[in-house]
Design a protein around this nucleic acid. Sequence first.
DNA 1: CTGAAAGCGCTTACAG
DNA 2: CTGAAAGCGCTTACAG
Lengths: 332, 332
Amino acid sequence: MKVTISNIAQKAGVSKMTVSRVINRTGPVAPKTEEKIRKLIKELNYHPDHIAQSLSSKTTRTIGIVIPKKEKIFLDNYIAHILSGVSEVLKAEGYKIMLFPVDVENEYEVNGIVQANLVDGLILLKISDDDEYIKKISDLSLPSIRINNRDDGENINFIDCENIKGVKLAIDYLYHKGHKKIGFVCGRLDESNGIDRFEGYKKSINELGLEYNEDWIIKGNFDKELAYENTEKLLSLGNKPTAIFSSDDYMALGVIEKLQEKGYRVPEDFAVIGFDDIDVASILKPSLTTIRQPMHDLGSNAASLLLDIINGKIITPVKKFLDVELIERETT
Amino acid sequence: MKVTISNIAQKAGVSKMTVSRVINRTGPVAPKTEEKIRKLIKELNYHPDHIAQSLSSKTTRTIGIVIPKKEKIFLDNYIAHILSGVSEVLKAEGYKIMLFPVDVENEYEVNGIVQANLVDGLILLKISDDDEYIKKISDLSLPSIRINNRDDGENINFIDCENIKGVKLAIDYLYHKGHKKIGFVCGRLDESNGIDRFEGYKKSINELGLEYNEDWIIKGNFDKELAYENTEKLLSLGNKPTAIFSSDDYMALGVIEKLQEKGYRVPEDFAVIGFDDIDVASILKPSLTTIRQPMHDLGSNAASLLLDIINGKIITPVKKFLDVELIERETT
DNA sequence: CTGAAAGCGCTTACAG
DNA sequence: CTGAAAGCGCTTACAG
């Protein structure tokens, strides 16, 4: 039998209101009354019904995390680090976590999440900018924040890393190592990350007066396999780069795999540098030089900021960038 | 302004009951009435309030996933694969997912989850058998299933892999490769996984008439670092094993790291075999020979079974084992 | 310091 | 095929 607030109230000889005051530590309650109620709560092992609380209070103390529904989404080290950061903060603040893997094509679905009143706010993870309907969420009353989608929209909150700076760090580093011919592995160009890193590459190359060669641009789409495949074309070139900057680590892994398969040595024949610093980067042989972005902090910051937005403690829109750093290892 | 079932009912000139029938596809509704209501739902962009539905229907269509609250829990490849499998099924079946990272010491907390009426069932992931209060969950009316905790308890549902068979596969394989001295890296002995693999090792060694040597048992506790540290003792031995079976892949990685650091070659000086087949196992150099357990299927099966339990389609207790296989790679 | 009343947005059980 | 009433377990807003 379920124990309700009415049971407690009845046994304590008070009204539900008073019990509610004790549970929520709101309003004044006589010490003796409180003591009696607390004792009963413990005795009867009473726990408030969160669903009922939510319905009447119009607040759920739950945050929704929207992630693209892909087979390997939880296996993505980047996602995993962010989830760690997000859940750490939410848990500490007493918020519950609801996970929403969404079919990005299905507008109705996301709409439904928002309107189902299940959550007090939404963290949008790796949702492409192209998803027009996602933008609508920002127009709704539900507080939300995106991770890794820079967007200058007026009512869009986001947190991202310093992508352009990161690329510059990488290219400058390669340059100072003596590389004049630097290739580039491109990510998805419908994500601000992919765009920014490409822009950063072109800008850095230009600033250093280095050669920009269309043939040295490998289309990788943030996909290891694709990067692996497309690296082959590069190798048939007469005029090859001596170093390759990859827009993320997974693609760098694909590139290295292909290079080694074709008998090239890394870093002797080709220096390779990645972006993110995923966990395997340091385990690999040779270990991967990369630009580290603070994935865990991206998650924890996003959660903190979202809670601040919900509680009106912060002025929106929030647009925050976290710093990046170069991690030198064996592939350069 | 929030659109409610009352708004729709009013505009359609019917009762809330009839609208509810349309939404839930329950009971008969005249085609014309239904059409009118559907049109209004679309026009007004109505979505039912899940919280209100839950409160009155006493069912949430939400499954809770309980995981130990550890910093790196999402980074654990095993957890990640299981989450993939679980979420795939739940999503397909229209269930929502709530994530509960719990402090395993805090009984009140898990109790609260159960009593908050937030979920229709619970999947318990990597929760140690020692957690007495967790066992109590099984005694509550809330349906639940554990992943990877074999437990013969009368009202405990679980799904696990064939641990003992897996170990036998590994030891027999090493034996046929010519190894007579086989060391063992031990996992946590408060988890059925850890226990079963240790038992499996002793049994297999015994059946083959091989030497059982206390000094060849490395305490790893399912922790890569610890395995790395403790491998050192093994190396100071006069009588060393020629092969090492590790209770999981992460520990195998630690062992190999130490071996290589001390100048030993794998597999020439020591053959190493792991358990799980985590993603890095195939990326590593040398790539890791291991016993693959179907982590994704463990997750998807657990979810399916839990839903079957909830819907009374299956007789409890459910105790299911999934098959394992040997994946031969370069470390043996 | 305490309580009676109304209501959150639905569904259930019943009646017709 | 349709609806009026009651209720799920809480909180809010008000009164005293």
